[in-house]
Amino acid sequence: MFDITVFDGARKTAPFAAQYDWPDLCELFEEASQKPWCRSAKLDQMAYIPGLLTGPRCSNNIAHLSFGSYDIDTASDDPAYTNFDTMRDALESMNVGYILATSTKSLRSAHRFRLIIRFEQRVLPQNHLAMWHHMNGRFGGIFDRSTHDASRLSFFPARWTGLPRSADGQDIADWPETDSFQAFACNADGPGVVLPDFSNLNHPVLPAATREPRAPSSSPIQRNGVSEKATELLETCAAIVPDKGSAGYRLATNPSNRLYAGTRAFGEIQGGRMFRFLCRVAARAFSRGLPINADLLFDLATAVNKENGGHHRPDLRREVERALIKEAQFISDARSHP
Protein backbone atom coordinates (compact mmCIF):
# COMPACT_ATOMS: atom_id res chain seq x y z
CA MET A 1 0.00 0.00 0.00
CA PHE A 2 1.14 3.53 -0.77
CA ASP A 3 0.72 6.37 1.74
CA ILE A 4 -0.30 9.78 0.45
CA THR A 5 -1.01 12.92 2.47
CA VAL A 6 -3.64 15.14 0.86
CA PHE A 7 -4.51 18.80 1.40
CA ASP A 8 -7.76 20.35 0.19
CA GLY A 9 -5.87 23.17 -1.49
CA ALA A 10 -2.44 24.69 -0.93
CA ARG A 11 -3.78 27.21 1.58
CA LYS A 12 -5.21 24.54 3.88
CA THR A 13 -3.16 23.35 6.84
CA ALA A 14 -5.19 20.30 7.90
CA PRO A 15 -4.18 17.24 5.85
CA PHE A 16 -5.71 13.81 5.67
CA ALA A 17 -3.69 10.65 5.14
CA ALA A 18 -4.82 7.82 2.87
CA GLN A 19 -3.51 4.53 1.54
CA TYR A 20 -3.97 3.11 -1.94
CA ASP A 21 -2.60 0.20 -3.85
CA TRP A 22 -0.81 1.30 -7.01
CA PRO A 23 -3.63 0.61 -9.52
CA ASP A 24 -6.09 2.58 -7.38
CA LEU A 25 -3.62 5.44 -7.06
CA CYS A 26 -3.32 5.51 -10.85
CA GLU A 27 -7.11 5.57 -11.14
CA LEU A 28 -7.35 8.41 -8.60
CA PHE A 29 -4.97 10.59 -10.61
CA GLU A 30 -6.56 9.71 -13.94
CA GLU A 31 -10.02 10.69 -12.66
CA ALA A 32 -8.61 13.97 -11.36
CA SER A 33 -7.04 14.69 -14.77
CA GLN A 34 -10.49 14.58 -16.41
CA LYS A 35 -12.19 17.06 -14.09
CA PRO A 36 -12.23 20.71 -15.25
CA TRP A 37 -10.44 23.20 -13.02
CA CYS A 38 -9.57 26.85 -13.61
CA ARG A 39 -5.89 27.60 -13.88
CA SER A 40 -6.45 30.80 -11.92
CA ALA A 41 -7.79 28.70 -9.02
CA LYS A 42 -4.84 26.32 -8.98
CA LEU A 43 -4.12 26.98 -5.29
CA ASP A 44 -7.58 25.65 -4.43
CA GLN A 45 -6.99 22.37 -6.24
CA MET A 46 -6.21 19.34 -4.08
CA ALA A 47 -2.52 18.89 -3.40
CA TYR A 48 -0.47 16.08 -1.94
CA ILE A 49 2.78 14.90 -0.42
CA PRO A 50 3.82 11.49 -1.83
CA GLY A 51 4.17 9.88 1.56
CA LEU A 52 3.20 10.10 5.21
CA LEU A 53 3.25 13.42 7.12
CA THR A 54 3.15 13.18 10.92
CA GLY A 55 2.70 16.83 11.97
CA PRO A 56 2.76 20.37 10.54
CA ARG A 57 4.05 20.40 7.01
CA CYS A 58 7.84 20.55 7.03
CA SER A 59 10.61 18.17 6.07
CA ASN A 60 11.25 17.15 9.68
CA ASN A 61 7.72 15.70 9.92
CA ILE A 62 7.95 13.41 6.89
CA ALA A 63 7.87 9.81 8.15
CA HIS A 64 8.61 8.36 4.71
CA LEU A 65 7.93 8.82 1.02
CA SER A 66 6.00 6.09 -0.78
CA PHE A 67 6.63 7.24 -4.35
CA GLY A 68 8.43 9.99 -6.22
CA SER A 69 6.79 13.16 -7.56
CA TYR A 70 8.89 15.32 -9.87
CA ASP A 71 8.18 18.34 -12.09
CA ILE A 72 9.71 18.59 -15.55
CA ASP A 73 9.55 22.14 -16.93
CA THR A 74 12.56 22.18 -19.24
CA ALA A 75 12.45 25.00 -21.80
CA SER A 76 11.77 23.80 -25.33
CA ASP A 77 15.04 25.32 -26.59
CA ASP A 78 17.08 23.46 -23.97
CA PRO A 79 19.04 20.49 -25.42
CA ALA A 80 17.69 18.39 -22.54
CA TYR A 81 14.04 19.13 -23.44
CA THR A 82 11.85 16.03 -23.47
CA ASN A 83 8.27 16.04 -24.72
CA PHE A 84 5.42 14.06 -23.19
CA ASP A 85 5.38 11.24 -25.75
CA THR A 86 9.13 10.69 -25.53
CA MET A 87 8.98 10.51 -21.74
CA ARG A 88 6.03 8.09 -21.84
CA ASP A 89 7.88 5.82 -24.28
CA ALA A 90 11.00 5.90 -22.10
CA LEU A 91 8.97 4.95 -19.03
CA GLU A 92 7.30 2.10 -20.85
CA SER A 93 10.66 0.77 -21.95
CA MET A 94 11.82 0.89 -18.32
CA ASN A 95 8.83 -1.30 -17.35
CA VAL A 96 8.12 0.69 -14.21
CA GLY A 97 4.95 1.86 -12.49
CA TYR A 98 4.46 5.53 -13.33
CA ILE A 99 1.93 8.34 -13.67
CA LEU A 100 2.54 11.15 -16.15
CA ALA A 101 0.29 14.23 -16.26
CA THR A 102 0.69 17.64 -17.87
CA SER A 103 0.74 20.66 -15.56
CA THR A 104 -1.08 23.99 -15.74
CA LYS A 105 1.18 25.88 -18.15
CA SER A 106 1.89 23.04 -20.56
CA LEU A 107 1.81 24.14 -24.21
CA ARG A 108 1.99 22.27 -27.50
CA SER A 109 5.19 24.21 -28.13
CA ALA A 110 6.63 23.40 -24.68
CA HIS A 111 5.35 20.36 -22.79
CA ARG A 112 5.41 20.65 -18.99
CA PHE A 113 4.42 17.71 -16.84
CA ARG A 114 4.69 15.87 -13.55
CA LEU A 115 6.34 12.48 -13.34
CA ILE A 116 5.21 10.18 -10.53
CA ILE A 117 7.33 7.05 -10.05
CA ARG A 118 6.46 3.97 -8.06
CA PHE A 119 9.08 2.97 -5.46
CA GLU A 120 9.69 -0.66 -4.59
CA GLN A 121 10.09 0.33 -0.93
CA ARG A 122 9.46 3.38 1.20
CA VAL A 123 12.18 6.01 1.25
CA LEU A 124 13.10 7.28 4.71
CA PRO A 125 13.58 11.04 5.12
CA GLN A 126 17.34 10.80 5.62
CA ASN A 127 17.58 9.15 2.19
CA HIS A 128 15.19 11.40 0.32
CA LEU A 129 17.76 13.81 -1.07
CA ALA A 130 20.01 10.98 -2.23
CA MET A 131 17.00 9.34 -3.89
CA TRP A 132 16.10 12.64 -5.56
CA HIS A 133 19.60 12.92 -7.02
CA HIS A 134 19.55 9.26 -8.05
CA MET A 135 16.26 9.57 -9.93
CA ASN A 136 17.16 12.95 -11.43
CA GLY A 137 20.38 11.41 -12.72
CA ARG A 138 18.47 8.55 -14.33
CA PHE A 139 16.43 11.09 -16.29
CA GLY A 140 19.28 13.30 -17.39
CA GLY A 141 19.07 15.95 -14.69
CA ILE A 142 15.83 17.53 -15.94
CA PHE A 143 13.82 17.66 -12.71
CA ASP A 144 12.71 21.01 -11.32
CA ARG A 145 15.02 21.58 -8.34
CA SER A 146 12.15 22.59 -6.06
CA THR A 147 11.02 18.96 -5.97
CA HIS A 148 14.03 18.07 -3.82
CA ASP A 149 12.02 19.26 -0.78
CA ALA A 150 10.38 16.19 0.77
CA SER A 151 7.50 18.27 2.20
CA ARG A 152 6.75 20.13 -1.02
CA LEU A 153 3.14 20.06 -2.15
CA SER A 154 2.30 18.80 -5.64
CA PHE A 155 -1.07 19.57 -7.19
CA PHE A 156 -3.34 16.89 -8.51
CA PRO A 157 -3.78 17.02 -12.28
CA ALA A 158 -6.93 18.44 -13.83
CA ARG A 159 -8.46 19.37 -17.17
CA TRP A 160 -7.16 22.91 -16.86
CA THR A 161 -9.17 25.82 -18.27
CA GLY A 162 -8.70 29.58 -18.48
CA LEU A 163 -5.66 31.71 -17.80
CA PRO A 164 -2.98 31.02 -15.20
CA ARG A 165 -2.03 33.61 -12.61
CA SER A 166 1.30 35.26 -11.89
CA ALA A 167 3.04 35.12 -8.52
CA ASP A 168 1.30 38.31 -7.40
CA GLY A 169 -2.17 36.94 -8.17
CA GLN A 170 -2.86 38.62 -11.54
CA ASP A 171 -4.15 36.75 -14.59
CA ILE A 172 -1.45 36.39 -17.26
CA ALA A 173 -3.48 37.97 -20.05
CA ASP A 174 -1.02 37.14 -22.84
CA TRP A 175 -0.68 33.45 -21.94
CA PRO A 176 -1.50 31.49 -25.15
CA GLU A 177 -4.41 29.37 -23.92
CA THR A 178 -5.21 28.17 -27.45
CA ASP A 179 -1.75 26.52 -27.55
CA SER A 180 -2.32 24.57 -24.32
CA PHE A 181 -1.45 20.87 -24.30
CA GLN A 182 -2.93 18.33 -21.88
CA ALA A 183 -2.32 14.61 -21.61
CA PHE A 184 -2.27 11.76 -19.10
CA ALA A 185 -0.60 8.35 -19.09
CA CYS A 186 0.15 5.70 -16.50
CA ASN A 187 1.31 2.13 -16.02
CA ALA A 188 -0.88 0.61 -13.33
CA ASP A 189 0.79 -2.79 -13.59
CA GLY A 190 4.44 -1.78 -13.60
CA PRO A 191 6.73 -2.68 -10.70
CA GLY A 192 8.43 -0.18 -8.41
CA VAL A 193 11.87 1.29 -8.93
CA VAL A 194 14.47 -0.62 -6.93
CA LEU A 195 16.05 1.66 -4.33
CA PRO A 196 19.81 2.17 -4.62
CA ASP A 197 22.33 1.36 -1.90
CA PHE A 198 22.21 4.70 -0.10
CA SER A 199 25.44 3.96 1.77
CA ASN A 200 27.28 4.21 -1.54
CA LEU A 201 25.61 7.42 -2.68
CA ASN A 202 27.16 10.75 -1.81
CA HIS A 203 24.79 13.64 -2.41
CA PRO A 204 24.90 15.78 0.75
CA VAL A 205 23.68 18.95 -0.96
CA LEU A 206 22.16 20.02 -4.24
CA PRO A 207 24.68 20.92 -6.92
CA ALA A 208 25.17 24.59 -7.61
CA ALA A 209 23.04 26.09 -10.33
CA THR A 210 24.77 26.23 -13.68
CA ARG A 211 23.77 29.86 -14.19
CA GLU A 212 24.21 32.67 -11.72
CA PRO A 213 21.24 34.95 -11.06
CA ARG A 214 21.39 38.30 -12.78
CA ALA A 215 23.22 41.03 -10.98
CA PRO A 216 20.83 43.65 -9.63
CA SER A 217 20.33 46.73 -11.72
CA SER A 218 21.26 50.09 -10.23
CA SER A 219 18.18 51.71 -11.75
CA PRO A 220 15.67 53.06 -9.21
CA ILE A 221 12.32 51.43 -8.54
CA GLN A 222 9.58 52.75 -10.80
CA ARG A 223 7.10 54.46 -8.48
CA ASN A 224 4.31 55.51 -10.78
CA GLY A 225 1.08 55.59 -8.81
CA VAL A 226 2.82 55.11 -5.45
CA SER A 227 1.53 57.41 -2.71
CA GLU A 228 3.67 60.08 -1.12
CA LYS A 229 3.65 58.28 2.25
CA ALA A 230 4.67 54.97 0.66
CA THR A 231 7.49 56.73 -1.20
CA GLU A 232 8.64 58.30 2.06
CA LEU A 233 8.68 54.88 3.73
CA LEU A 234 10.69 53.38 0.86
CA GLU A 235 13.22 56.21 1.00
CA THR A 236 13.49 56.20 4.80
CA CYS A 237 14.37 52.50 4.97
CA ALA A 238 16.64 52.71 1.92
CA ALA A 239 18.60 55.61 3.43
CA ILE A 240 19.84 53.47 6.33
CA VAL A 241 20.97 50.45 4.30
CA PRO A 242 24.64 49.81 5.15
CA ASP A 243 27.28 49.71 2.46
CA LYS A 244 27.62 46.51 0.45
CA GLY A 245 30.40 44.37 1.83
CA SER A 246 29.98 45.74 5.34
CA ALA A 247 29.26 43.45 8.28
CA GLY A 248 25.77 44.93 8.62
CA TYR A 249 24.92 44.26 4.97
CA ARG A 250 26.23 40.70 5.17
CA LEU A 251 24.16 40.10 8.29
CA ALA A 252 20.97 41.46 6.69
CA THR A 253 21.39 39.29 3.58
CA ASN A 254 22.20 36.09 5.46
CA PRO A 255 19.34 33.54 5.00
CA SER A 256 19.66 32.52 8.66
CA ASN A 257 18.92 36.07 9.89
CA ARG A 258 15.41 35.61 11.26
CA LEU A 259 14.93 39.34 11.75
CA TYR A 260 14.65 39.61 7.97
CA ALA A 261 13.94 36.10 6.70
CA GLY A 262 11.53 35.07 9.46
CA THR A 263 11.13 31.63 10.98
CA ARG A 264 9.02 29.80 8.39
CA ALA A 265 11.00 27.43 6.21
CA PHE A 266 11.10 28.71 2.63
CA GLY A 267 9.93 25.32 1.34
CA GLU A 268 6.69 25.56 3.35
CA ILE A 269 5.36 28.35 1.13
CA GLN A 270 3.57 27.09 -1.97
CA GLY A 271 2.13 28.95 -4.92
CA GLY A 272 4.39 31.88 -5.86
CA ARG A 273 6.49 31.18 -2.80
CA MET A 274 9.38 33.49 -3.79
CA PHE A 275 7.08 36.49 -4.22
CA ARG A 276 5.38 35.69 -0.91
CA PHE A 277 8.77 35.44 0.75
CA LEU A 278 9.78 38.82 -0.70
CA CYS A 279 6.55 40.41 0.54
CA ARG A 280 6.99 39.01 4.04
CA VAL A 281 10.57 40.28 4.27
CA ALA A 282 9.57 43.72 2.95
CA ALA A 283 6.59 43.95 5.33
CA ARG A 284 8.77 42.94 8.28
CA ALA A 285 11.40 45.53 7.40
CA PHE A 286 8.97 48.40 6.77
CA SER A 287 6.89 47.73 9.88
CA ARG A 288 10.01 47.67 12.08
CA GLY A 289 11.96 50.43 10.34
CA LEU A 290 14.75 48.09 9.27
CA PRO A 291 17.21 48.97 6.50
CA ILE A 292 15.96 47.68 3.15
CA ASN A 293 16.14 48.55 -0.52
CA ALA A 294 16.00 46.66 -3.81
CA ASP A 295 19.65 45.63 -3.73
CA LEU A 296 19.47 44.26 -0.18
CA LEU A 297 16.25 42.33 -0.81
CA PHE A 298 17.58 41.01 -4.12
CA ASP A 299 20.79 39.75 -2.49
CA LEU A 300 18.88 38.14 0.39
CA ALA A 301 16.43 36.47 -2.03
CA THR A 302 19.32 35.23 -4.19
CA ALA A 303 20.98 33.67 -1.15
CA VAL A 304 17.73 32.03 -0.01
CA ASN A 305 17.03 30.75 -3.52
CA LYS A 306 20.51 29.21 -3.76
CA GLU A 307 20.29 27.67 -0.28
CA ASN A 308 17.03 25.94 -1.26
CA GLY A 309 18.31 24.62 -4.60
CA GLY A 310 16.24 27.06 -6.63
CA HIS A 311 16.62 27.49 -10.37
CA HIS A 312 17.71 30.66 -12.15
CA ARG A 313 15.10 33.42 -11.74
CA PRO A 314 15.46 35.95 -14.57
CA ASP A 315 12.56 38.06 -13.19
CA LEU A 316 13.79 38.21 -9.60
CA ARG A 317 14.70 41.90 -9.75
CA ARG A 318 11.23 42.78 -10.98
CA GLU A 319 9.63 40.61 -8.28
CA VAL A 320 11.74 42.39 -5.65
CA GLU A 321 10.63 45.81 -6.84
CA ARG A 322 6.95 44.83 -6.94
CA ALA A 323 7.13 43.39 -3.43
CA LEU A 324 8.75 46.53 -2.00
CA ILE A 325 6.16 48.83 -3.54
CA LYS A 326 3.24 46.59 -2.62
CA GLU A 327 4.21 46.31 1.05
CA ALA A 328 5.26 49.95 1.43
CA GLN A 329 1.90 51.03 0.04
CA PHE A 330 -0.01 48.58 2.26
CA ILE A 331 1.78 49.59 5.47
CA SER A 332 1.57 53.31 4.78
CA ASP A 333 -2.15 53.01 4.04
CA ALA A 334 -2.69 51.06 7.25
CA ARG A 335 -0.88 53.72 9.26
CA SER A 336 -2.99 56.42 7.66
CA HIS A 337 -6.24 54.61 8.61
CA PRO A 338 -5.70 53.04 12.03
Rank of each mutant, 00 (worst) to 15 (best):
A10P: 04
G140W: 00
E228T: 14
L206M: 02
G310W: 07
E228C: 12
N308F: 06
Q170G: 08
F181M: 14
T54N: 04
R284Q: 06
H111C: 10
P338H: 13
A90W: 10
D171N: 10
S199K: 13
V123D: 00
G272P: 09
Q34I: 08
Y249S: 11
V320S: 05
L100A: 00
S93Q: 15
D189Y: 05
I221Q: 06
D24H: 11
H133Y: 00
Q126Y: 05
N293T: 11
S103T: 08
P216F: 12
N254S: 12
E307H: 05
S246I: 03
G51P: 06
H111R: 04
S219W: 08
A230T: 01
D89L: 05
Q182T: 04
P314A: 15
L153G: 00
P164M: 04
V226Q: 01
L52G: 01
K12C: 04
P242L: 07
P207W: 08
L43S: 13
K326I: 10
R112V: 02
G68P: 01
F16A: 03
E177N: 11
V226E: 01
P36W: 06
D299C: 03
P176L: 00
C38I: 08
S227H: 13
P196V: 03
E232V: 05
N308V: 09
R214P: 08
E92Y: 13
A47E: 09
A247S: 07
R280S: 11
A265Y: 14
I4A: 00
V320E: 12
P36S: 02
L233P: 06
